[in-house]
Design a protein around this nucleic acid. Sequence first.
DNA 1: AGTTGATTTTAGGTGCACCTAAATTTAGGT
DNA 2: ACCTAAATTTAGGTGCACCTAAAATCAACT
Lengths: 217, 217
Amino acid sequence: MAKNQSTEDYLKGIYKLQHNGKGVATSELAKHLKIGDGSVTGMIKKLAAKRLVHHTPYKGVSLTASGKRLAVQMIRRHRLWEMFLVKFLGYRWDEIHDEAERLEHVTSQEMERRLDKALGYPKVDPHGDPIPTMNGEFDGTAYSPLSEFEVGDRVKIIRVDDDQGVLQLAATLGLGLNKNLTVKEKMKFDGSMIVKVGPKEQFISQRIAKSIFVRVV
Amino acid sequence: MAKNQSTEDYLKGIYKLQHNGKGVATSELAKHLKIGDGSVTGMIKKLAAKRLVHHTPYKGVSLTASGKRLAVQMIRRHRLWEMFLVKFLGYRWDEIHDEAERLEHVTSQEMERRLDKALGYPKVDPHGDPIPTMNGEFDGTAYSPLSEFEVGDRVKIIRVDDDQGVLQLAATLGLGLNKNLTVKEKMKFDGSMIVKVGPKEQFISQRIAKSIFVRVV
DNA sequence: AGTTGATTTTAGGTGCACCTAAATTTAGGT
DNA sequence: ACCTAAATTTAGGTGCACCTAAAATCAACT
Ligand SMILES: [Mn+2]
Ligand SMILES: [Mn+2]
Ligand SMILES: [Mn+2]
Ligand SMILES: [Mn+2]
């Protein structure tokens, strides 16, 4: 049942891209994985032969039940490792993605369980992304992008996009998980904002406000 | 400079087998890696082209300076991970080898340094094998197999062979690292012994006594 | 319904790490 | 020196994951 690195990355990619609608376009997956379109078509046929995906030629791929199970397992392992890197090794939240990307593929079920336990059964990773349970269930807190809020709203940061640039900037601005903030100004012109975080006010572009997810508090 | 899993396992294998004399026989390496002789010859030629090993056809392989550097780095990573698995995840010392065997290949230099630090810069792994420094230096305490000692000798366990069977049995008998023990009896006939460990006396075969390494205390 | 541009698949490669079986080389004993 | 058995290398495969370029299909607009 355990598969290899490529298989795992394809399944994870399909999972990530699918949420929007139904089938994922091969070209979309190819772009995500940085692999040629033709190569992806070929690989997809192998995955279909192993019953991990459904493939209707020219119409896109989707995960089967077992494909989805594996994809979610990889996401769980990825996020547990990210947690480990921050909590045990003291990495910053913007340094962990690529490391976890490799660790996730060499993780036995036993290790996964022990990691989870050692970390105190965390519900979310260092970016606020939910860590699915061993049974593949997600426990999602609802959130919306900060960019959608208005002057006067008091909100708490629930999740930040796992993107190096976003994470670095957010950290610099003092915008970490669970931080409370108040929208002080919002420019009609370009959607940028001034928000109050702790004692000080910060200017933030719409671009970054769209990558920071919050809920009212 | 970083290489892939196969390369790393070949170099580590050559390093392990070389200590005896000079060149390592291809068949010896093949047996160690559980790979066909012909495949090993082929791979060795690639490693030689990359200047990681010296290969005199029909006369064996040996590591170049950079090959040795990489081999020792893998050993360091392997042993740091074994330490992590025991100290942070609570694995038993007989369960960790195969897990570390995979983790060692996905470890960046940054991770290696942070792991080392988080573990408190350990000098030996959970089996008593020395952990080389970042510069590749080993800090070896001298030891001899328990089987060479005689009645009356008081010794301390410094190292136990990283072999599942040996480790499981040793643990059952209460023979862990740094434990002190006294040789109570030694049978001429088959080299088996009775040793006192803490309050109780244990019978141990020569086979196991040869896999437990100690020094006088 | 027909043309056309974009998407997708197919066809024909490559490099890698392995395999098995056939040659070759080496070393030991006469 | 010669023969032979064992060790080693070579030769000719395989499967995998990738590539590029050509062919097929789709969809969408006249
Ligand atoms: Mn990955
Ligand atoms: Mn994350
Ligand atoms: Mn290994
Ligand atoms: Mn060890």
